[in-house]
Write a protein that binds this DNA or RNA. Structure first.
Length: 323
DNA sequence: AGCCGCCTGGTTCCATCGTA
DNA sequence: TACGATGGAACCAGGCGGCT
C-alpha cells in the first residue's frame, strides 16, 4: 500500500498537487500567490531515528491515555487532568506529561487523537488568533479524503472539527470543569473576550452538544508537547486500525466487547511487525486507541511509510501506511 | 439525482446486572 | 437494600455507500 502511494505521489518530500479539490490542488504550488498560506496543504515523508521514542496519546476530558514505545518495549499510562489551573495550566500539563513519560523529550514524536486548533483558529501562536480567511473545512481533512479516495477500499469517517464559537460556548456552560476552563482560557483568551460582547449568553449543556469539548484538552496537549520539544502530530486511531486491519473486520466501538477484542488482536500483530514487546495488552478502548497510534507509527517506520499532511494554521497530521 | 441510513468522536444519563 | 460495574441510547455534523 505504501509503495502504491509513493508511486502515485512522485516528488515525495515536496509539496504535492491534489487534483480533486481545487483549493488543495492550488495549495501545492508555491507560485499560486492567490492561495493564502493558511489554505495550502503540505505533504511530506517523515523519517524516525531508530532511538526515537514514539508516544500515542488518546485524549479525554478528564484523562489522557498514553502508549509509550521506547527501547523496544511498549507501556501504557494514564494521566489525570483534574487540578490543572491558572495561571499556567498548559505548563502544568507539560510537567505532568514529562513526569508520566520522561521519554517525551527532544527527538521523540507524539501522535495525538485530537486536532491542534478549532477550524477557524490559527494555532501558530498562543493564545490562538482568528484564521483569515476562515475556511469552510480543514485543509488537512480534504487531503485525507483525497488520500483515502486514491487508496480505495478503506472508509474514512471523521467527525468535523468545530469552530471557535462552539468552544467558547462550551467554556461558558454552567458546571464547566475547572481544568477545562483554565486550559480553554489560556488557549482562546482573546476569542473569549471578543465573543462575550457579541454572542449573548447561550450555553451548551446537553451531553450530545458538548461532547467534542474534549478537544480543548487536545489543543492544550499539542502546545504542551511543543514546550517539551516533542514533534507532535495529530492522528486518528480509527483510521489507523482500518489501514492496518488486513482482512479483519473492525467492529464499531458501540459493540464494546467485540470492538476491544479485535483491536487487541490488531495491536498484537502490529507489535510483532514493529518488533516491539508490549508490557501488557490494552484493557480499554481508550488504551487500544493510544496503542494503535504508537504501534502503527513504529510499524510503518520499519516496513511502511509515514506521511505528514499539514499547514501552518492547522498543524500536522501523521498517516502511518502499511507496505 | 436524491434520499436514507450508517459511521466517526467522548460524555451523560438511565437501566440492568451482580455482589456484599 | 445498597452499592459499583457495565451496557446502550442520545447527542451533533458531515461524508459516503447503497438504494430507488
Amino acid at each position: 500500500m505504501a509503495s502504491a502511494f509513493a508511486r502515485k505521489r512522485r516528488r515525495m518530500g515536496r509539496e504535492h498537487h491534489l487534483p480533486r479539490d481545487a483549493r488543495i490542488r492550488k495549495a501545492g504550488d508555491r507560485r499560486q500567490a492567490r492561495v493564502p498560506a493558511s489554505l495550502r496543504l503540505r505533504c511530506r515523508k517523515v523519517g524516525l531515528g531508530r532511538a526515537a521514542a514514539i508516544v500515542g496519546i488518546d485524549v479525554g476530558e478528564d484523562f489522557l491515555d498514553l502508549a509509550i514505545i521506547a527501547r523496544g518495549s511498549l507501556r501504557l499510562s494514564r494521566i489525570a487532568l483534574a487540578g490543572l489551573g491558572a495561571p499556567r495550566a498548559i505548563a502544568s500539563l507539560a510537567a505532568r506529561l514529562a513526569e508520566a513519560a520522561p521519554e517525551l523529550s527532544r527527538g521523540a514524536i507524539a501522535l495525538v487523537d485530537s486536532p491542534r486548533a478549532p477550524l477557524d483558529a490559527d494555532s501558530s501562536s498562543i493564545p490562538m488568533k482568528p484564521r483569515r480567511p476562515a475556511p469552510s473545512g480543514r485543509v488537512i481533512d480534504g487531503g485525507l479524503r483525497h488520500l483515502f479516495a486514491r487508496l480505495g477500499r478503506h472508509r474514512l469517517s471523521m467527525y468535523p472539527t468545530p469552530g471557535v464559537e462552539y468552544f467558547v460556548r462550551c467554556l461558558r456552560a454552567r458546571g464547566l470543569k475547572a481544568h477545562l476552563e483554565a486550559l480553554g482560557r489560556e488557549l482562546l483568551g482573546r476569542f473569549h473576550q471578543i465573543s462575550s460582547a457579541t454572542m449573548g449568553h447561550s450555553t451548551i449543556n446537553s451531553g450530545g452538544a458538548l461532547f467534542t469539548r474534549f478537544m480543548i484538552v487536545g489543543f492544550a496537549v499539542h502546545v504542551a508537547l511543543g514546550m517539551l520539544g516533542v514533534r507532535a502530530f495529530e492522528s486518528f486511531p480509527d483510521m489507523e486500525f482500518r489501514l492496518w486491519s488486513g482482512d479483519v473486520r473492525l467492529a464499531p466501538k458501540t459493540r464494546r466487547r467485540e470492538a476491544l477484542a479485535v483491536r487487541r488482536r490488531i495491536c498484537s500483530r502490529l507489535a510483532r511487525i514493529a518488533g516491539i514487546f508490549p508490557a501488557r495488552a490494552p484493557l480499554t478502548l481508550d488504551e487500544a486507541d493510544a496503542a494503535v497510534l504508537a504501534l502503527t507509527a513504529a510499524a510503518a517506520a520499519k516496513s511502511g511509510l509515514l506521511v505528514a499532511l499539514g499547514n501552518p494554521a492547522e498543524g500536522r497530521f501523521l498517516v502511518a501506511l502499511p507496505r
